[in-house]
Write a protein that binds this DNA or RNA. Structure first.
Lengths: 156, 156
DNA sequence: ATCTGTGCAAACCTTTTGCACGTCA
DNA sequence: TGACGTGCAAAAGGTTTGCACAGAT
Protein backbone atom coordinates (compact mmCIF):
# COMPACT_ATOMS: atom_id res chain seq x y z
CA UNK A 1 0.00 0.00 0.00
CA UNK A 2 2.65 2.44 1.10
CA UNK A 3 4.74 1.18 -1.76
CA UNK A 4 2.01 1.72 -4.33
CA UNK A 5 1.52 5.21 -3.00
CA UNK A 6 5.18 6.11 -3.33
CA UNK A 7 5.41 4.48 -6.74
CA UNK A 8 2.52 6.60 -7.86
CA UNK A 9 4.27 9.70 -6.58
CA UNK A 10 7.41 8.79 -8.44
CA UNK A 11 5.42 8.33 -11.62
CA UNK A 12 3.72 11.71 -11.27
CA UNK A 13 7.03 13.38 -10.55
CA UNK A 14 8.71 11.70 -13.50
CA UNK A 15 5.95 12.69 -15.89
CA UNK A 16 6.29 16.26 -14.76
CA UNK A 17 10.06 16.15 -15.05
CA UNK A 18 9.88 14.66 -18.52
CA UNK A 19 7.65 17.48 -19.73
CA UNK A 20 10.14 20.00 -18.41
CA UNK A 21 12.97 18.24 -20.24
CA UNK A 22 11.01 18.33 -23.46
CA UNK A 23 10.14 22.01 -23.15
CA UNK A 24 13.71 22.94 -22.29
CA UNK A 25 14.92 21.33 -25.47
CA UNK A 26 12.20 22.70 -27.67
CA UNK A 27 10.68 19.24 -28.09
CA UNK A 28 7.02 18.43 -27.98
CA UNK A 29 4.81 16.43 -25.67
CA UNK A 30 2.99 13.87 -27.72
CA UNK A 31 0.49 11.18 -27.01
CA UNK A 32 2.97 8.49 -28.01
CA UNK A 33 5.65 9.75 -25.66
CA UNK A 34 3.15 9.82 -22.82
CA UNK A 35 1.97 6.29 -23.56
CA UNK A 36 5.50 4.93 -23.78
CA UNK A 37 6.51 6.63 -20.54
CA UNK A 38 3.42 5.28 -18.81
CA UNK A 39 4.09 1.72 -19.94
CA UNK A 40 7.76 2.01 -19.15
CA UNK A 41 7.11 3.17 -15.59
CA UNK A 42 4.40 0.58 -15.05
CA UNK A 43 6.56 -2.40 -15.89
CA UNK A 44 8.80 -3.85 -13.24
CA UNK A 45 11.02 -6.25 -15.12
CA UNK A 46 14.07 -5.31 -17.10
CA UNK A 47 12.42 -5.36 -20.47
CA UNK A 48 14.29 -5.18 -23.73
CA UNK A 49 13.19 -2.60 -26.24
CA UNK A 50 11.37 -5.24 -28.21
CA UNK A 51 9.58 -6.62 -25.17
CA UNK A 52 8.49 -3.15 -24.20
CA UNK A 53 7.32 -2.53 -27.74
CA UNK A 54 5.20 -5.68 -27.67
CA UNK A 55 3.77 -4.67 -24.32
CA UNK A 56 2.85 -1.24 -25.65
CA UNK A 57 1.37 -2.65 -28.80
CA UNK A 58 -1.17 -4.63 -26.83
CA UNK A 59 -3.04 -1.45 -25.99
CA UNK A 60 -1.75 0.81 -28.73
CA UNK A 61 -1.21 -1.14 -31.93
CA UNK A 62 -0.48 1.93 -33.96
CA UNK A 63 2.72 2.92 -32.20
CA UNK A 64 5.70 2.01 -34.33
CA UNK A 65 8.89 0.24 -33.46
CA UNK A 66 11.03 3.24 -34.34
CA UNK A 67 9.09 5.51 -32.03
CA UNK A 68 9.74 3.22 -29.10
CA UNK A 69 13.44 3.15 -29.88
CA UNK A 70 13.60 6.90 -30.29
CA UNK A 71 11.63 7.55 -27.15
CA UNK A 72 13.68 5.24 -24.96
CA UNK A 73 16.82 6.97 -26.19
CA UNK A 74 15.18 10.22 -25.25
CA UNK A 75 14.38 8.91 -21.77
CA UNK A 76 18.01 7.96 -21.37
CA UNK A 77 19.13 11.44 -22.42
CA UNK A 78 16.75 13.00 -19.94
CA UNK A 79 18.04 10.75 -17.17
CA UNK A 80 14.71 8.99 -16.75
CA UNK A 81 15.96 5.65 -18.02
CA UNK A 82 19.27 3.84 -18.01
CA UNK A 83 20.54 1.69 -20.82
CA UNK A 84 21.67 -1.74 -19.79
CA UNK A 85 23.12 -4.64 -21.62
CA UNK A 86 23.39 -8.10 -20.16
CA UNK A 87 25.19 -9.66 -23.06
CA UNK A 88 22.24 -11.21 -24.89
CA UNK A 89 22.55 -8.76 -27.74
CA UNK A 90 19.59 -6.65 -26.76
CA UNK A 91 19.55 -3.31 -25.02
CA UNK A 92 17.40 -3.07 -21.95
CA UNK A 93 16.14 0.04 -20.22
CA UNK A 94 15.16 0.55 -16.65
CA UNK A 95 13.89 3.50 -14.67
CA UNK A 96 16.80 5.51 -13.31
CA UNK A 97 16.16 6.78 -9.84
CA UNK A 98 19.38 8.69 -9.41
CA UNK A 99 20.05 8.27 -5.70
CA UNK A 100 18.68 4.81 -5.24
CA UNK A 101 21.20 2.97 -7.40
CA UNK A 102 21.11 -0.78 -7.59
CA UNK A 103 23.09 -3.60 -9.13
CA UNK A 104 22.14 -6.98 -10.55
CA UNK A 105 22.36 -10.67 -9.93
CA UNK A 106 21.71 -12.53 -13.18
CA UNK A 107 20.93 -16.23 -13.29
CA UNK A 108 22.89 -17.83 -16.12
CA UNK A 109 20.42 -20.70 -16.28
CA UNK A 110 16.96 -19.14 -16.28
CA UNK A 111 17.91 -15.53 -17.02
CA UNK A 112 16.08 -14.09 -14.02
CA UNK A 113 17.41 -10.80 -12.73
CA UNK A 114 17.48 -9.77 -9.07
CA UNK A 115 18.40 -6.30 -7.89
CA UNK A 116 20.50 -5.48 -4.88
CA UNK A 117 22.49 -2.65 -3.43
CA UNK A 118 25.40 -2.45 -1.08
CA UNK A 119 26.63 0.85 0.23
CA UNK A 120 30.03 -0.49 1.22
CA UNK A 121 30.74 -1.61 -2.35
CA UNK A 122 29.55 1.76 -3.61
CA UNK A 123 31.93 3.49 -1.23
CA UNK A 124 34.88 1.34 -2.29
CA UNK A 125 34.15 2.12 -5.91
CA UNK A 126 34.48 5.79 -5.15
CA UNK A 127 37.79 5.17 -3.44
CA UNK A 128 39.11 3.26 -6.46
CA UNK A 129 38.01 5.93 -8.91
CA UNK A 130 39.72 8.61 -6.82
CA UNK A 131 42.81 6.51 -6.67
CA UNK A 132 43.00 6.44 -10.47
CA UNK A 133 42.19 10.12 -10.79
CA UNK A 134 38.79 9.36 -12.33
CA UNK A 135 35.80 11.54 -11.74
CA UNK A 136 33.20 8.81 -11.44
CA UNK A 137 29.88 9.33 -13.16
CA UNK A 138 28.23 5.96 -12.93
CA UNK A 139 28.93 2.30 -12.59
CA UNK A 140 27.51 -1.11 -13.17
CA UNK A 141 28.03 -4.26 -11.20
CA UNK A 142 26.60 -7.53 -12.45
CA UNK A 143 27.01 -10.83 -10.67
CA UNK A 144 26.38 -13.90 -12.81
CA UNK A 145 25.57 -17.25 -11.28
CA UNK A 146 22.90 -19.84 -10.65
CA UNK A 147 19.89 -18.80 -8.63
CA UNK A 148 18.65 -20.97 -5.79
CA UNK A 149 15.65 -22.22 -7.79
CA UNK A 150 17.82 -23.45 -10.65
CA UNK A 151 20.28 -25.03 -8.23
CA UNK A 152 17.46 -27.07 -6.73
CA UNK A 153 16.19 -28.10 -10.16
CA UNK A 154 19.64 -29.27 -11.17
CA UNK A 155 19.84 -31.66 -8.26
CA UNK A 156 16.73 -33.45 -9.44
CA UNK B 1 61.90 -8.01 -18.05
CA UNK B 2 60.38 -10.24 -15.43
CA UNK B 3 57.04 -9.22 -16.80
CA UNK B 4 57.95 -10.15 -20.35
CA UNK B 5 59.23 -13.44 -19.12
CA UNK B 6 56.02 -14.27 -17.29
CA UNK B 7 53.91 -13.06 -20.20
CA UNK B 8 55.78 -15.39 -22.43
CA UNK B 9 55.16 -18.25 -20.06
CA UNK B 10 51.48 -17.49 -19.97
CA UNK B 11 51.38 -17.50 -23.75
CA UNK B 12 53.14 -20.84 -23.98
CA UNK B 13 50.85 -22.30 -21.36
CA UNK B 14 47.77 -20.97 -23.07
CA UNK B 15 48.79 -22.32 -26.44
CA UNK B 16 49.29 -25.73 -24.86
CA UNK B 17 46.00 -25.54 -23.04
CA UNK B 18 44.18 -24.51 -26.19
CA UNK B 19 45.49 -27.53 -28.07
CA UNK B 20 44.26 -29.77 -25.30
CA UNK B 21 40.83 -28.18 -25.44
CA UNK B 22 40.67 -28.75 -29.17
CA UNK B 23 41.73 -32.38 -28.93
CA UNK B 24 39.30 -33.09 -26.13
CA UNK B 25 36.44 -31.83 -28.26
CA UNK B 26 37.57 -33.58 -31.41
CA UNK B 27 38.44 -30.27 -33.03
CA UNK B 28 41.51 -29.55 -35.07
CA UNK B 29 44.52 -27.32 -34.66
CA UNK B 30 44.75 -25.12 -37.68
CA UNK B 31 47.08 -22.42 -38.82
CA UNK B 32 44.33 -19.83 -38.58
CA UNK B 33 43.48 -20.70 -35.01
CA UNK B 34 47.15 -20.46 -34.06
CA UNK B 35 47.52 -17.09 -35.75
CA UNK B 36 44.41 -15.68 -34.15
CA UNK B 37 45.46 -16.91 -30.72
CA UNK B 38 48.92 -15.43 -31.17
CA UNK B 39 47.55 -12.05 -32.16
CA UNK B 40 44.95 -12.12 -29.45
CA UNK B 41 47.51 -12.82 -26.74
CA UNK B 42 49.93 -10.27 -28.11
CA UNK B 43 47.56 -7.36 -27.98
CA UNK B 44 47.10 -5.53 -24.73
CA UNK B 45 44.12 -3.33 -25.34
CA UNK B 46 40.52 -4.40 -25.17
CA UNK B 47 40.01 -4.84 -28.87
CA UNK B 48 36.67 -5.38 -30.47
CA UNK B 49 36.31 -8.30 -32.84
CA UNK B 50 36.59 -5.99 -35.80
CA UNK B 51 39.71 -4.28 -34.46
CA UNK B 52 41.32 -7.64 -33.84
CA UNK B 53 40.36 -8.74 -37.33
CA UNK B 54 41.99 -5.68 -38.84
CA UNK B 55 45.08 -6.29 -36.75
CA UNK B 56 45.27 -9.88 -37.93
CA UNK B 57 44.68 -8.91 -41.52
CA UNK B 58 47.80 -6.77 -41.55
CA UNK B 59 49.97 -9.88 -41.51
CA UNK B 60 47.48 -12.44 -42.77
CA UNK B 61 45.18 -10.90 -45.34
CA UNK B 62 43.58 -14.18 -46.23
CA UNK B 63 41.97 -14.85 -42.87
CA UNK B 64 38.26 -14.14 -43.08
CA UNK B 65 36.00 -12.20 -40.81
CA UNK B 66 33.89 -15.21 -39.96
CA UNK B 67 36.90 -17.21 -38.88
CA UNK B 68 37.87 -14.55 -36.38
CA UNK B 69 34.36 -14.48 -34.98
CA UNK B 70 34.18 -18.24 -34.77
CA UNK B 71 37.59 -18.54 -33.20
CA UNK B 72 36.98 -15.90 -30.55
CA UNK B 73 33.78 -17.68 -29.61
CA UNK B 74 35.82 -20.83 -29.33
CA UNK B 75 38.34 -19.11 -27.08
CA UNK B 76 35.49 -18.00 -24.85
CA UNK B 77 34.14 -21.55 -24.66
CA UNK B 78 37.58 -22.84 -23.75
CA UNK B 79 37.91 -20.22 -21.05
CA UNK B 80 40.84 -18.52 -22.75
CA UNK B 81 38.94 -15.33 -23.52
CA UNK B 82 36.10 -13.45 -21.90
CA UNK B 83 33.39 -11.63 -23.79
CA UNK B 84 32.86 -8.06 -22.72
CA UNK B 85 30.52 -5.38 -23.77
CA UNK B 86 30.94 -1.75 -22.87
CA UNK B 87 27.76 -0.53 -24.46
CA UNK B 88 29.14 0.68 -27.78
CA UNK B 89 27.42 -2.10 -29.70
CA UNK B 90 30.55 -4.15 -30.25
CA UNK B 91 31.68 -7.22 -28.39
CA UNK B 92 35.17 -7.13 -27.02
CA UNK B 93 37.30 -10.05 -25.93
CA UNK B 94 40.12 -10.11 -23.47
CA UNK B 95 42.41 -12.83 -22.17
CA UNK B 96 40.82 -14.56 -19.19
CA UNK B 97 43.33 -15.32 -16.49
CA UNK B 98 40.96 -17.16 -14.19
CA UNK B 99 42.44 -16.26 -10.81
CA UNK B 100 43.64 -12.81 -11.58
CA UNK B 101 40.28 -11.19 -12.20
CA UNK B 102 40.10 -7.51 -12.88
CA UNK B 103 37.48 -4.85 -13.40
CA UNK B 104 37.37 -1.70 -15.51
CA UNK B 105 37.39 2.05 -15.32
CA UNK B 106 36.08 3.48 -18.60
CA UNK B 107 36.52 7.10 -19.56
CA UNK B 108 33.28 8.42 -21.02
CA UNK B 109 35.14 11.15 -22.86
CA UNK B 110 38.07 9.47 -24.57
CA UNK B 111 37.01 5.84 -24.21
CA UNK B 112 40.23 4.70 -22.58
CA UNK B 113 39.96 1.65 -20.37
CA UNK B 114 41.95 1.09 -17.20
CA UNK B 115 41.96 -2.18 -15.30
CA UNK B 116 41.91 -2.55 -11.55
CA UNK B 117 41.14 -5.10 -8.92
CA UNK B 118 40.02 -4.91 -5.34
CA UNK B 119 39.86 -7.98 -3.18
CA UNK B 120 37.52 -6.39 -0.66
CA UNK B 121 34.92 -5.71 -3.33
CA UNK B 122 35.35 -9.24 -4.63
CA UNK B 123 34.74 -10.56 -1.14
CA UNK B 124 31.62 -8.46 -0.65
CA UNK B 125 30.24 -9.71 -3.95
CA UNK B 126 30.53 -13.25 -2.68
CA UNK B 127 28.68 -12.30 0.49
CA UNK B 128 25.86 -10.74 -1.51
CA UNK B 129 25.52 -13.73 -3.82
CA UNK B 130 25.35 -16.06 -0.83
CA UNK B 131 22.78 -13.84 0.75
CA UNK B 132 20.52 -14.25 -2.28
CA UNK B 133 21.16 -17.97 -2.56
CA UNK B 134 23.13 -17.54 -5.80
CA UNK B 135 26.03 -19.73 -6.69
CA UNK B 136 28.25 -17.07 -8.21
CA UNK B 137 30.09 -17.93 -11.40
CA UNK B 138 31.46 -14.61 -12.54
CA UNK B 139 30.92 -10.91 -12.31
CA UNK B 140 31.67 -7.64 -13.98
CA UNK B 141 32.19 -4.26 -12.46
CA UNK B 142 32.58 -1.22 -14.69
CA UNK B 143 33.10 2.28 -13.38
CA UNK B 144 32.32 5.03 -15.87
CA UNK B 145 33.74 8.52 -15.46
CA UNK B 146 36.21 11.08 -16.74
CA UNK B 147 39.87 10.18 -16.60
CA UNK B 148 42.39 12.62 -15.21
CA UNK B 149 43.74 13.51 -18.65
CA UNK B 150 40.31 14.46 -19.96
CA UNK B 151 39.54 16.40 -16.80
CA UNK B 152 42.65 18.51 -17.36
CA UNK B 153 41.78 19.07 -21.01
CA UNK B 154 38.31 20.24 -20.09
CA UNK B 155 39.65 22.96 -17.85
CA UNK B 156 41.55 24.51 -20.74
C1' DA C 1 1.91 28.27 -40.06
C1' DT C 2 5.81 26.12 -38.67
C1' DC C 3 8.59 22.92 -36.98
C1' DT C 4 8.85 18.61 -34.58
C1' DG C 5 7.13 13.70 -34.28
C1' DT C 6 5.41 9.50 -36.29
C1' DG C 7 4.95 5.34 -39.08
C1' DC C 8 6.62 2.76 -42.56
C1' DA C 9 10.12 0.68 -45.00
C1' DA C 10 14.64 0.65 -46.28
C1' DA C 11 19.31 1.04 -44.67
C1' DC C 12 22.89 -0.12 -41.42
C1' DC C 13 26.00 -2.59 -38.57
C1' DT C 14 27.48 -6.42 -36.12
C1' DT C 15 27.26 -11.22 -35.92
C1' DT C 16 25.82 -15.78 -37.74
C1' DT C 17 25.09 -19.25 -41.22
C1' DG C 18 25.10 -22.11 -45.70
C1' DC C 19 27.88 -23.95 -48.94
C1' DA C 20 31.66 -25.53 -51.78
C1' DC C 21 36.36 -26.06 -51.31
C1' DG C 22 40.62 -26.73 -48.44
C1' DT C 23 43.11 -28.86 -44.67
C1' DC C 24 44.28 -31.58 -40.58
C1' DA C 25 44.29 -36.19 -38.41
C1' DT D 1 40.05 -40.69 -46.84
C1' DG D 2 36.83 -38.36 -44.03
C1' DA D 3 35.62 -35.09 -40.81
C1' DC D 4 36.21 -30.59 -39.49
C1' DG D 5 37.65 -25.68 -40.85
C1' DT D 6 37.75 -21.82 -43.92
C1' DG D 7 36.36 -18.07 -47.02
C1' DC D 8 32.97 -15.97 -49.28
C1' DA D 9 28.67 -14.08 -49.65
C1' DA D 10 24.19 -14.04 -48.15
C1' DA D 11 21.12 -14.01 -44.09
C1' DA D 12 19.81 -12.63 -39.67
C1' DG D 13 18.87 -9.79 -35.73
C1' DG D 14 18.84 -5.48 -33.52
C1' DT D 15 18.89 -0.53 -34.23
C1' DT D 16 18.86 3.71 -37.00
C1' DT D 17 17.42 6.69 -40.68
C1' DG D 18 14.91 9.00 -44.77
C1' DC D 19 10.77 10.53 -46.16
C1' DA D 20 6.05 12.03 -46.57
C1' DC D 21 2.35 12.86 -43.70
C1' DA D 22 0.35 14.05 -38.96
C1' DG D 23 0.26 16.68 -34.90
C1' DA D 24 1.80 20.03 -31.26
C1' DT D 25 2.92 24.92 -30.22
Amino acid sequence: MVENQSQLEVAVETREYFKQCLTQRGLKSTQQRAIILETFLGVKEHLSTEELYLQIREDHPKIGYATVYRTLKLFAECGIAEERNFGDGQTRYEPAHAEDHHDHLICTTCGSIVEFEDSEIERLQGVIADHHGFKMESHRLDLYGICSTCQKKKKT
